[in-house]
């Protein structure tokens, strides 16, 4: 129950925050303020027909963009690794969350079988992606990239200043990596004959909460890295 509510609230809140930020980014510099008018206009914008995912062409465009982005950032065969990771991840996130929200029993049956199979592919592709991309998100590389970025970046309330977007991308990347590690480790742990019932419960909770962190990181990645 707690997980269901928390995950729903966090996912919706982050999505709204990111899309609202994107909406504000479309406005002239002077109008980028949190006002009731802007919020109303944002609602109209986000719920409007223009951006609606009810249109098939919108899905097509998203897919085209993702494929193009994959090709651009992952040369050669590595693009396929990215595509597999994306595909598996979409299924894993949807099956896990939908069952967590709507089915008291949780994930079971054929969706569970597919979830486990997709989980294995996800773990393999994540390992490869980490090998390929981890160095780009190391602090030393980040400094260089941040210096070359001309964008204003995002407002960090803790530091009280704007930070480059590449920092946000790095946070998303490493959160995704760490949660992916926890997801794989908790899956493996629950299958090994070394852990007792309380440990099984721990693994289960670790799995679902790291899945939530992973989803949030994935949404962030989508916003700061993939979608222009």
């Amino acid at each position: 129950m707690i997980f269901g509510i928390t995950s729903l609230v966090l996912i919706v809140a982050l999505s709204l925050r990111l899309t609202f930020g994107r909406y504000l980014g479309r406005l002239p510099e002077d109008n980028r303020k949190i006002t009731a008018e802007n919020f109303k206009a944002y609602i109209k914008w986000i719920a409007g027909w223009k951006l609606s995912f009810l249109k098939l062409e919108r899905w097509d465009r998203c897919l085209d963009h993702l494929v193009a982005w994959g090709k651009k950032n992952y040369p050669g065969w590595t693009a396929w690794v990215f595509y597999i990771l994306s595909l598996c991840y979409v299924y894993l996130a949807f099956s896990g969350l939908i069952f967590a929200w709507l089915v008291p029993r949780g994930l079971y049956g054929y969706p569970l079988l597919l979830h486990v199979a997709a989980g294995a592919l996800f773990a393999i592709s994540l390992t490869i992606i980490l090998f390929l991309k981890a160095r780009e998100f190391l602090p030393d590389k980040l400094g260089l990239r941040a210096a070359t970025q001309d964008k204003r970046g995002f407002w960090c309330p803790l530091l009280g200043k704007h930070l480059p977007r590449s920092y946000l991308a790095a946070v998303a990347f490493w959160v995704f990596a760490v949660s992916g590690f926890l997801l794989a480790a908790s899956t493996l742990g629950s299958m090994l004959p070394y852990f007792n019932y309380p440990a099984q419960i721990l693994f289960f909770n670790l799995h679902r909460w790291s899945a939530l962190a992973s989803v949030l990181a994935a949404i962030l990645t989508l916003d700061v890295m993939i979608v222009d």
Binding site: T127, L130, A184
Partner: peptide, 9 residues
Amino acid sequence: ILAACVLVI
């Protein structure tokens, strides 16, 4: 496979 992935990551 999963153990190898966990180890590498």
